[in-house]
């Protein structure tokens, strides 16, 4: 009996934990929608100079992707040291690749 109660309460605890994570993910989704609408609205409204718009929409994309990685893809959870190493390794090579391709056309 006592054992059963223990099992049940751990299951409840897990369900609670899953629910808590779900809540954060729904908030993440709302934020991502807001970032997307903001980016489109900035470009459509054409109120800001183009030299400012491009860094702003790139920043919005970056923040949105960080949310996606950490909340939707669970990178904020424990045991994600190796995934972080993999993805940041990938991102650093990606940045160098894009730098190479965009600077090579200057000359």
């Amino acid at each position: 009996m006592a054992k059963d109660t223990k099992t049940k309460s751990t299951t409840d605890f897990k369900k609670e934990a899953h629910k808590e994570e779900m809540k954060q993910q729904v908030v993440t989704f709302a934020l991502m929608i807001i970032f997307t609408i903001a980016a489109f609205a900035l470009v459509v409204s054409d109120v800001i100079d183009r030299y400012f718009i491009i860094p702003i929409i790139l920043l919005l994309a970056l923040v949105q992707v960080i949310f996606q990685l950490y909340y939707f893809m669970h990178m904020k959870n424990k045991g994600h040291e190796m995934p972080a190493l993999m993805i940041y390794g990938g991102i650093s090579v990606a940045v160098m690749t894009i730098l190479t391709f965009t600077t090579i056309i200057w000359w």
């Binding site: 993999m86 894009i98 391709f101």
Partner: peptide
């Protein structure tokens, strides 16, 4: 599977970066 897949995603990031770089150029 979990570790291997994240390794793959790191590689995919580089692959798409080369396509983005080409596009920007």
């Amino acid at each position: 599977k979990f570790l291997g897949f994240w390794f793959f995603l790191g590689g995919e990031t580089v692959l798409f970066a080369s396509l983005f770089g080409t596009y920007l150029a």
